[in-house]
Design a protein around this nucleic acid. Structure first.
Ligand code: FES
Ligand code: FES
Lengths: 140, 140
DNA sequence: TTATACCCCACTAATATTGTCAACATTCAA
DNA sequence: TTGAATGTTGACAATATTAGTGGGGTATAA
């Protein structure tokens, strides 16, 4: 029941983009150093995020990545789903597969409640929320 | 972000024990057939559940397993934690490790909210709830 | 005494995770 | 114009985890 590094690293990187949100593209190298992550690995994650329209890229020297919209308009859920796929605790919840032989699986009902609860949390937090809360904590 | 088969199968098996809760021990073989699971695999899961005092065993012929208390006094959370360990989306949330170099990791705040939300759901559902809900659905 | 169960441990095949690496395309700035 | 900086893509590999299988025990009811 762990979130993989894809989700965690990707979210950390997106947080950095939100923190320095503006007109200047930010290079992968900078983000990787700032957050202590592998640049090559982040590349893969950013390709997903770009495919899903959360970031845009600027090629060439002084290039880098930018959020496609304001941090307040990007949710943690959008980021995590782009990186991890749907955040369901089992296949049967995500699609409509039956993983058990049971016609009416009791476990599935529980899993669906877990999924709903996770969705509810991640869809209600935006990148801006993360930035605000972090700045608040750091100023203490 | 998937629950492993340990958690799913184990919960299905515990549900079966709850469904047939009484004085008679229920054999692994019966549960395995009923739910379409591997008997040998279930053995491993049951050893965890027993270690954590959720079930007791009766050896010998006509033996099997029994819940140690009523279904209403066993939560899904207790079952899943026995099988999967703590249900945290990352190490740093479970213990007090820092997985990032950041002093004040923004992602960690999000992960903690996810964990709290999951805990909240699984600790509020008992095996009895699962039984009641399933019987209700099946009677339709 | 024998069939039926739980008990325990070792082992493995398949899959997913977590990256690394190399070759290439595009753009900016000197 | 040229080279350095940067994104793009796809292949590859080490490691860890998952999802079991199998076998040799022990206890007990019939
Ligand atoms: S149908 Fe997926 S756990 Fe039951
Ligand atoms: S400290 Fe664990 S994700 Fe940041």
């Amino acid at each position: 029941m762990k979130l993989s590094t894809k989700g965690r690293y990707g979210l950390m990187a997106m947080f950095q983009l939100a923190l320095e949100f503006g007109d200047e593209p930010i290079s992968l190298k900078y983000i990787a150093e700032k957050q202590g992550l592998s640049e090559n690995y982040l590349e893969q994650l950013f390709s997903n995020l770009k495919r899903d329209g959360l970031i845009q890229s600027v090629r060439g020297a002084q290039g880098g990545y930018l959020l496609t919209r304001e941090p307040k308009d990007i949710t943690v859920g959008q980021v995590l789903r782009s990186l991890e796929g749907h955040l369901a605790p089992a296949e049967c919840v995500q699609h409509d597969i039956d993983c058990s032989k049971e016609d009416n699986c009791a476990t599935k009902l529980v899993l669906m409640k877990i999924k709903d609860s996770i969705d509810n949390v991640i869809d209600s937090i935006t990148l801006e929320d993360m930035v605000v809360e972090t700045l608040k904590n750091n100023s203490n």
